[in-house]
Nucleic acid binder design. Structure first.
Lengths: 259, 259
DNA sequence: CGGGACGTTGACGGTCGTCAAAATTAGTGG
DNA sequence: CCACTAATTTTGACGACCGTCAACGTCCCG
């Protein structure tokens, strides 16, 4: 509903790594990346692909709870998520804050920074993560020469705008049950597009973060989960959710309030 | 709060026109347009400016109530508003709908269409309007050569994303009074940036459209206006609004719910 | 094992949605 | 220019939904 449909790709495989050993500084290569179909334009020539390989500067690891960037910090890069899970949130001086999205592998972070050369929200890792740095100046340079990249950048920006419209629809016109149903369906769909189960998912965020995203309190989120369980629509064990009746969730989102 | 601050420019002057006479097909010239500072990159060379002049195809008049484009229609152009006032709204099959924004002179419409080659919302004129057509294919072509244009397009897209974040904050965490206060301040600020009065404004939209935008019912909007009037914060005569205490409106938006 | 973060559940009340009716304005055609 | 109808706005009464506050339970990690 909020994201464009993505063709399923092979599940993400993390290279096994000896415990305690620091991550090797792999040379980044989009051409080999199994997230390529999510991040990159399709139908590139081998030559263009290589130039984009060179564009991607390096990777950065972010630990759970750390900021990838902060509201007000200088904007220099876009970030492609390789592994891990993020939230973005905006806040006001007086402490009100609002989660504006949850981002997973293959999605792009940092688009908010372009307009003012500074970021306008916080991006925080909800689990240990790794991102590819995409220096914005290089993107502009290269997309002047590779029109497929140019168009792809425009699409990524436009997709975010369309996603935001969906969130506004949710926040402006849905009730608690509809919001949570839409949230679960959206997560499940995006995970499925990455090769994960369509019906089984692990929430990476707290009830409070879900509530902030959906414009609800954590108590309402908890109670609504409870109602779904009582109705046999989902099973919930802490952050593990199994969707039993996808169609019922869809019906809730689609059903008009007045009908 | 939602839009970047814009330097005030001279008020918009419509060329006087004999009644009943159809609008002349003016040759568009951005270089002479008094909205230039809103639409266009700054610091262009005369040569680049001329090339952008040529990019702008033609103008189109939209009558009040007509669609500039519809959800699902093919995306071909961006639109720069020359005169008039628009709303954009998304809707679901079941009839739920949500106003996602109100747009005025100097602002750009159509960004949602880039990602899927089709528009994902409706854009409807709230008063008779005139827009400049910006063929998207030409924008891509030219912005490969004029880097200032390229960057400007990115900024416009990014600005919309930041604006949307602000709307999410509003819808997700503010109460009725705070929402309406933020709405009025935002309108007043944007009008002031166009050379209009900061304190006196004419609403181009119904209470229902305001409500849809703010995630409220039209009754709540009406009642909240009534409360503002009773408190001496604004004067309201139908769609004419005079802001008497800007600082009080600001206080309402800034004040934490919990404080 | 203990402390803290997180989640659940209950009671209560406020905000705002719903329904209804009246008032005011805008729009249309004679 | 006026009458008539539709659209918009206002106002009231009522109650549902969900926020608030509080207490308790559970999980995780050092």
């Amino acid at each position: 509903m909020f994201e464009a449909n993505l063709a399923p790709i092979t599940p993400i495989q993390e290279a096994p790594r000896a415990p305690g050993k620091t991550a090797q500084a792999f040379k980044v290569a989009c051409s080999n990346c199994n997230l390529r179909e999510l991040c990159m334009p399709v139908g590139l020539s081998a030559q263009d692909l290589q130039r984009i390989d060179e564009l991607v500067g390096s990777r950065r690891r972010i630990l759970r709870g750390e900021n990838l960037y902060r509201n007000g910090s200088v904007f220099e890069n876009l970030y492609a998520i390789r592994t891990g899970f993020f939230k973005t949130s905006v806040s006001t001086e007086d402490g009100r804050d609002q989660v504006t999205g949850f981002q997973m592998a293959g999605e792009i972070l940092g688009l908010d920074g372009i307009v003012n050369d500074r970021h306008s929200c916080d991006a925080i890792a909800l689990e240990d993560a790794e991102v590819c740095l995409l220096p914005y100046a290089d993107i502009e340079l290269l997309s002047r020469e590779v029109s497929a990249l140019q168009h792809h950048v425009h699409k990524i920006l436009s997709r975010e705008i369309v996603r935001d419209q969906g969130v506004m629809l949710l926040l402006g016109s849905m009730r608690a049950e509809e919001r949570l149903a839409a949230f679960l369906l959206n997560l499940a769909q995006r995970l499925a597009a990455r090769g994960f189960s369509q019906s089984e998912l692990v929430l990476r965020m707290t009830r409070e973060e879900i509530g902030s995203y959906l414009g609800l309190t954590l108590e309402t989120v908890s109670r609504t989960f409870g109602k779904f369980v009582a109705d046999g629509i989902v099973e919930v064990k802490q952050r593990h959710v199994r969707i039993l009746q996808t169609d019922e969730l869809k019906r809730m989102v689609t059903a008009s309030r007045k009908g």
